[in-house]
Design a protein around this nucleic acid. Structure first.
Lengths: 348, 348
DNA sequence: CCGACAAATGACAGCGTTGTCATAATGACA
DNA sequence: TGTCATTATGACAACGCTGTCATTTGTCGG
């Protein structure tokens, strides 16, 4: 029923240590021996006991996923991606919701790393972009990968999976410009998100490249929430000279903007274009369906997890500091424009 | 830095076995000794090593959360609730997305239980309501708790946390009836969900109690998705004699119905009332905001996890089959009506 | 105050793996 | 063919805890 390393060793006619070497991909095993062992492993469907590995070994077979993003879709997508990567490599995942604003973040992380002996950390925004968090994980001497908006990588690219918000926002803005819009309102996300600044930057660049003036009155602060989308859109639409299009920094805000427009009896997209960002499921569940930028969260997370695992494993296996770049790990993503029904030609 | 049971034993002046007894709440420890040990544990901030416990002990300190519900909000709420309960008792959580329709469910679960040696399972719908799954977990001789719609508990109440969909649906329907609606359309969820039948049952009872006829033409099949809400609502609204209210089986379908009404230029709630079920975040992000039934998923999950943990622990600690009902664990929930803006008086 | 019995405590052997170090096999070269 | 360096393999302890069983301590009746 329960097959241990001893069974495999017996079946292959070698010592358990040799089996251990094979399953851990250690050197100094003759190809013939390796093959014998592999066959035994296959035949018995042996799977190493994680608890024993964790206990005996110096490294652990668990990574942690840390997040403090309230967006359920985002978190689930990320989590599933990470889970896939873990499963593929026989690792376990520790889920750790947190709060980057909490004063005890440092102790919390330290405790997590030291007590649970995790092999690595995957961090998502805004947690991954918070200065105190970054400093803490660096000081903790643990492998980690931060999923961040491009600008937040700083000089830590090797530990980051970057999302180029600026480029994507540039594309979205250009889409609106090509539809003839000249006055485009911009609803910012929360200040603490680096993506907020990246998206705004993309907007500014696109406007500038089109030779259009940037009216600061059209740029409003917000916080990636439905309510802030409502408020922001109302403000823009009630102004003396309202914009013909609104670029909301995420789908939730865009849904809020849609809501506000509905309240004010403004037809979308005839009288006003609204675009979002992220392509979360409900960008297809609004009326009209949202034009947005597709962010492949699942894929991003998979790469992040694969990267942190490759770090953790290479450290264990080979001491020589080979760069050991694993194939198939993309380190930079640019969300792609998805045109749906909430954007149309500028009125008049 | 890393404090082991040996340190505690030394500090308290007892053997490690006694410390083990104390932290596991085993009998046969003199109160004075227990106190001494507790103090040492406190002083050193000792936390047992999970890997070692799992390896040495017959029981494990990990429970698994199994789900196949595509609703991210639902899953996250549940997950957070379970996580809280686990943390409070020093357990670890294994996340296991699955698919109740897959043919390999049995092997998958068997493998999970036997290989990972989990102490218990928490199952959510529709996974928890699938016959093959139920049979499998029963045969596996593992503690489990199914979160289910009341009717799915069958004769397995001791292992269920029940949600009384029927009662809640009754309340919602009565709310519409009190607003003067007489012809109420009903959009069903997926057949495989027991909640679908419970909610329909509540609707039927409320109609019957109000002395109103039940028109089968007004009851449409669907599948808890936005799209099926759109389709169902369109069908109802385009019929010769459309209803004045639509009861959608969940918020996502209700959002779909809202979408359809919008397409057909029907004013909500003036010309048509629409209600949902579940009170997921986007019931507040539609226009108008949805009248729905609040389902306290986080709380439900916390109770489910607490229940499975109390089962697992009581089995280990005391052999005598004490019922050992833990305080504060609610086993039956009835979602409560939340009136927002999508329901209003019947027209005319 | 003693023996008998129960309660409390501790010694020690695992749990299934990895790490360390000793030993054996292999291959190159004289 | 013998020697030495090198690579391959194995024996055994250790990881931090729990389970089993022996031992000690305490309690109570006589």
């Amino acid at each position: 029923m329960k097959v241990t390393i001893n069974d495999v060793a017996a079946q292959a006619g070698v010592s358990i240590k040799t089996v251990s070497r094979v399953i851990n991909n250690e050197p100094s095993v003759r190809p013939a021996t390796r093959k014998k062992v592999m066959e035994a492993v296959e035949a018995l469907n042996y799977q190493p006991n994680l608890a024993a590995r964790n206990l005996a070994g110096s490294r652990s077979y668990t990574i942690a996923f840390i997040y403090d993003n309230p967006n359920a879709y985002y978190v689930i997508d990320m989590q599933n991606g990470i889970l896939e990567a873990c499963k593929a490599r026989g690792y376990e995942l520790l889920i750790h919701p947190s709060n980057s604003k909490s004063a005890t973040v440092h102790d919390e992380l330290r405790n997590l790393v030291e007590h649970s002996k995790v092999a690595g950390l995957v961090l998502t925004p805004p947690f991954s972009e918070t200065q105190t968090v970054i400093e803490t994980v660096k000081s903790l001497n643990v492998d980690y990968v931060r999923i961040v908006s491009a600008a937040a990588a700083h000089d830590d690219e090797e530990n980051c999976i970057q999302v180029d918000d600026s480029a994507a926002a540039y594309d979205i803005t250009r889409h609106l410009l090509q539809l003839g819009h000249k006055r485009i309102g911009f609803l910012c996300g929360g200040e603490e998100h680096v993506s907020t600044h990246g998206r705004l930057d993309g907007y500014r660049r696109a406007m500038a490249d089109a030779g259009l003036p940037i009216e600061e009155d059209l740029i409003l602060k917000g916080e990636y929430s439905f309510d802030s989308g409502v408020t922001g859109a109302k403000t823009l639409l009630q102004s003396a000279n309202p914009p013909t299009a609104i670029f909301a920094s995420n789908d939730e805000m865009a849904a809020g903007a849609l809501f506000a427009a509905r309240l004010m009896h403004i037809e979308i997209p005839e009288q006003l274009s609204i675009v979002g960002f992220e392509d979360s499921p409900f960008s297809r569940q609004t009326w009209p369906k949202l034009t947005t930028a597709h962010q492949p969260n699942n894929e991003i997370a998979k790469c992040a997890a694969a990267l942190v695992l490759s770090k953790a494993r290479s450290k264990g296996a080979t001491e020589n500091g080979k760069a050991h770049k694993e194939a198939g790990i993309v380190r930079e993503f640019t969300p792609e424009l998805v045109v749906r029904d909430s954007s149309g030609p500028a009125p008049e």
